[in-house]
Amino acid sequence: MQILVNDERHDVTAANLAALLDELGYDVMARIATAVDGSFVAASRRATHSLHDGARVEILAPMQGG
């Protein structure tokens, strides 16, 4: 299945968002937030959030800001 993660194409086998983070190598303890197709997906709902071919996933982390 092809999905876009932070605007980069990935060929993955993960069926849901939690599995995707694991497959891509994100640390389970990392302080990150996720969105799929422009909508926020809470950490508690990642395991039940199914991914579809062409899904647009955003993975964000803390950064400096003004």
Binding site: N6, D7, L24, G25, Y26, D27, A30, R31, I32, A33, E58, I59, L60, A61, P62, M63, Q64, G65, G66
Partner: peptide, 22 residues
């Protein structure tokens, strides 16, 4: 202090290091 969010690649520790500092 104001902070923000940006894309982070797997394996990058930048966001986590910044959060620890804050």
């Amino acid at each position: 202090v104001t902070v923000s969010l940006r894309r982070e690649a797997a394996g990058s520790r930048a966001g986590q290091a910044f959060w620890a500092l804050i």
